[in-house]
Design a binder for these strands. Structure first.
Lengths: 187, 187, 187, 187
DNA sequence: GATGAATGAGATTTCATTCAT
DNA sequence: CATGAATGAAATCTCATTCAT
């Protein structure tokens, strides 16, 4: 019923399956079951759909993060965070990368900060709280480190899922090292 | 004079300026100053140029890494590495991401490992050597952590240079945190 | 308030600014501040607005012609007529031509005669009266010459205002020649 | 063989038959027997073909004018000129008007002067020569009057052929009046 | 009467690819 | 090897028109 949402859903499907390059507006409208011209009522180009897609994906991840027990240890929180982001990268395959690319190409880069901020904020709060308990190196700038950690997790997940073809068991080994490295990093 | 190299140079210029999506073979040949048909003597598609571009970029970074004093402390080595990768990201803007995207779209993903491996290898050796001196947590898998570190540095640099518009002074602050986090992480 | 008039006004604005070809019904309704469907309550196509536009323009010119003193000499009348038509062409720029084009394209050509007839009639009466006073060559068919004169004035004005970029002073020189030529022609 | 010429010829055919508004680039390439993309190698839009069409039409008229005996009387020259322009307007139906419209819409108005100038030049020379023989009012500016005459002839022809539905015999009557009026005008 | 979201046929436009030179 | 005009399939984009509200 909501044409805009149907466009977004169709775009996600097709970007995931075929990549942005090979996806056309014609494909999107066909998948969405709407008329050709209707697309242009909501988006000027196929890349202009990206911010909407990104918002949706980040919202999904954020929701999962919010379900983590606030009283858990920082180790448990980070472990959960790693699992959620890895799972997300795995599910959405190249979507994360495509969102980056889509953004930078549409020059709507400024929106990125805003859209991604809930994730940064969650890690930031975890770190800050842990710093107040002396569980984490107080000299680190929690805001900056939150971004570093999110980046490290995502880039590692991407290396695993997009560029590697190691067996699944390997994944756990990488996660162990990543968790250890991050906890070390926070001290 | 060397047509192939001129195609690569032109492609880099245009991918950086307009993104892969909007760059066409027609643009590339025009920028390269060669005939339309000549492109096909060297590359089958515009995405097939990506591996050549990636190789060139990685070679540049690797060369700089090799100039770092082998006897420096791990702190100095990591500091240098951060500076080199940040500078590279800044210079090449979105090229790193585009290389990822380009690769995943051409299904030549396997080449990525091979091309990027000199960078991983350099960090790997630094860590391993430090582990043998007990400077670094021996329980970490040096091969895995090398990738985590490269990923963390690159993603942080991207956040800074692509998605942020903070003043330059901010960059140093982020680098400080990143270095501290990584050194913590290794120990 | 009167939707029909708002459509006509908007159409004039846009036809003048962008030409008929590039003006769309969507543009017109937007300019008129009415809904898309409302246009069709008053006109079947965008060209069907032309007769209404023409009528309005001719009425304006005719009104000015009627204000000329009936007892003036034929020289004064022709001078006034030239000034009015020049001023009209200047104001409405290409509208005259567009009206022609619009008409011929809609096959509503027959209306043209009817709409333009007040202008022809005015000149016709001036000539006929002058012929009865022996001020004008009695062998000329007043009806035909009226059209020739209107045509000559308009085409000259168009050449000046649409296709020339001479300074204003030039205009007076052309008008002098035109008046002299017409008065010669009549006698 | 010459694709550009084939585009021009096809465009003339179709503009004459259906008007500019209803003619599409698709029609033109089909009529010209060339590929869709080929059109864009030569013209950016369908209106950009107009100057080329105008040039061709003016060249045809000019050629006929040049065949008029240089030693003929001014009456004979003007009579011939009227016949040629009437015949041209009759043959090309609305093309003259369409050229105007096409021009003004493409903002290539400046070219008009240049393209039309051979016709003006011909009349100019006729008048000037006649002025030197005292056959024509020496106070008239030959350059200006040349344009007035061309304009008067064309607009009268257009009124006849485009907007009137009088029987053919009428045409001769109008021509008589036009010639008489012009000769009077020149004195 | 008035609205304006939706339509989809059909227009414009692009661009990878070919091939005779 | 190199060229670049030509191609035409396929993309984007437009816009007159409809119709449920």
């Amino acid at each position: 019923m909501d044409k805009k949402q149907r466009i977004i859903d169709a775009a996600i499907q097709l970007y995931l399956k075929n990549g942005i390059e090979k996806t056309t507006i014609s494909h999107i409208v066909k998948e969405a079951g709407i008329a050709q011209g209707t697309f242009y009522l909501y988006f000027p180009t196929k890349l202009a759909v990206m911010p909407a897609i990104a918002e949706q994906m980040v919202a999904t991840v954020h929701e999962k993060l919010m379900q983590i027990d606030r009283n858990a240890t920082i180790r448990e929180k980070m472990l959960n965070c790693i699992n959620i982001l890895f799972s997300n990268t795995n599910t959405y395959q190249e979507l994360t990368k495509l969102i980056y690319t889509g953004f930078t190409q549409t020059e709507e880069v400024k929106q990125w900060e805003k859209i991604y901020s809930p994730l940064y904020a969650w890690v930031f709060e975890v770190i800050e709280e842990a710093q107040s308990n002396d569980e984490v190196d107080g000299k680190l700038d929690a805001k900056v480190v939150a971004r570093i950690i999110i980046g490290a997790i995502e880039s590692t997940a991407e290396q695993i899922y997009l560029f590697d073809d190691s067996p699944i068991t390997q994944v756990e080994h990488v996660k162990d090292n990543l968790l250890r490295f991050i906890l070390n990093g926070l001290n």
